[in-house]
Design a protein around this nucleic acid. Structure first.
Lengths: 238, 238
DNA sequence: CGCAACATTGAACGGTATCAAGTATGGTGG
DNA sequence: CCACCATACTTGATACCGTTCAATGTTGCG
């Protein structure tokens, strides 16, 4: 898949070409590998080209809390890039391929082309929107709703990245991964998953998710897709 | 307090002057007033000049979940500005005064001065850092820790805004507010607060917070101030 | 085949919510 | 200055959601 095409979610074709033009060579990582660790200095903006990854924070007691999931086309850890230091670790949930855009090149683009700064702002805004939705969910939703909401989000983002046809998509997360994302125990994730199945909303096995009753799932999870993909504004004043 | 001085947390003196120069007239809001409602179009970037405000999302069932707290000098809802539409409501927790920077003026600044784009990126990054920390907390910390952590954060940010001398600061949030922030019930907030008092860590009454044992509080809450105030990088490549 | 990772199930415990009162506290009008 | 009211805070009893521990089943893979 062409990098420039992948980047069109937030960038215009012209911007995407320019970004792809300054990107470094694509790097492959086996499943389970850590690209970035908490505290690392960040010298490039990483674009996920293929596979699924997640950003997490290790907590005292060996537990960890996932803070973001990445699908192809996503910018990984834009905040880390801006702060020059990452506050999370990023691990490949499947084998992945990543395109780095070196700081030297990107900073120059940002300084010479206002539209590039707007692109990065849009990326940050989108990341924030997802995180905001997660924060709401962690605080006020039941385990059943959290799971339903997450499944909705993943399904929606997979379709956004052209990785789902119809209601079926690859689902590379284990129940332990889901537990990390949602701040629940593995055991309880399992039970809620079965409840979702029992309610005839989903089918999930062997790395494939099928949404049987989207209407029902969205309703049960209180999911509003608006916060995703909403092509962000800030188009420039001149 | 001069607007330009307030803005120096993320901006250089020169940038701050420029921003203050294009700001509109300061607007006052009584306590409890809503500046912005979910779904509103955003036509200016709002800087909090005085008082405390919070951003929240209304949930089905009349509950609400707070997503951000603002102290003087904070940019309120930068994400809403970028997306041109807000996903949260913002309410004055105390009487407040707000300086708006109109979109027309700010967009022009951003387009002509790369350093202004960097300023907004730094603001976004800082907001994300706080939200990230909240998301971690909601998922993996006990009610006791959540409360401790929030008190640490508020105290630290108040000091950052020069609103606290030593270990004492104004604390304008009610227990109900705290419950909204932390996703807990008011009753349980009350109990945990008493436990914190009983453990000799804090004193909190009538809108004043006093940290009696900072070491102990930080330890109990697993608080690492690094994510705050850390003057963000991205200083420009030229 | 045998191992390792993942998924499932049950029982007991504990943290938090919920419901229902009751107690300061501060502001307002008489 | 007092009676009154609204708001915030405190307290207890009970129920439920989710965790933990421990064990068993299942799947895929070298």
């Amino acid at each position: 898949m062409d990098l420039s095409v992948l980047l069109r979610r937030f960038a215009t074709a012209d911007q995407a070409d320019r970004l792809a033009g300054v990107a470094g060579p694509i790097r492959s990582c086996p499943k389970g590998d850590c690209l970035i660790r908490e505290g690392d200095r960040i010298s490039a903006l990483s674009i996920l080209v293929e596979g699924v990854a997640h950003a997490y924070r290790a907590m005292p007691g060996g537990v960890q809390q996932t803070l973001a999931l990445f699908v192809p086309g996503d910018v990984m850890d834009a905040k880390g890039y801006i702060c020059e230091r990452s506050s999370v670790s990023i691990r490949a949930a499947t084998p992945i391929r990543v395109a780095p855009i070196p700081r030297l090149r990107l900073d120059e683009l940002i300084d010479t082309r206002p539209s590039m700064a707007r692109w990065l702002l849009a990326v940050m805004a989108s990341d924030s929107a997802v995180l905001e939705e997660w924060a709401v969910g962690m605080g006020r939703r039941s385990a059943y709703q959290k799971l339903g909401h997450l499944l909705c989000e993943i399904s929606a983002r997979m379709r956004g990245a052209d990785l789902a046809n119809d209601e079926v998509c690859a689902f590379p997360l284990t129940q332990a991964d889901l537990a990390d994302v949602l701040g629940l125990s593995v055991v309880h994730v399992n039970r809620m998953l079965q409840q979702l199945r029992g309610d005839g909303l989903i089918e999930l096995r062997q790395g494939r998710l099928k949404v049987l009753d989207r209407r029902g799932l969205v309703g049960a999870a209180d999911f509003d897709p608006g916060y995703l993909g909403a092509r962000v504004g800030i188009q420039g004043s001149r």
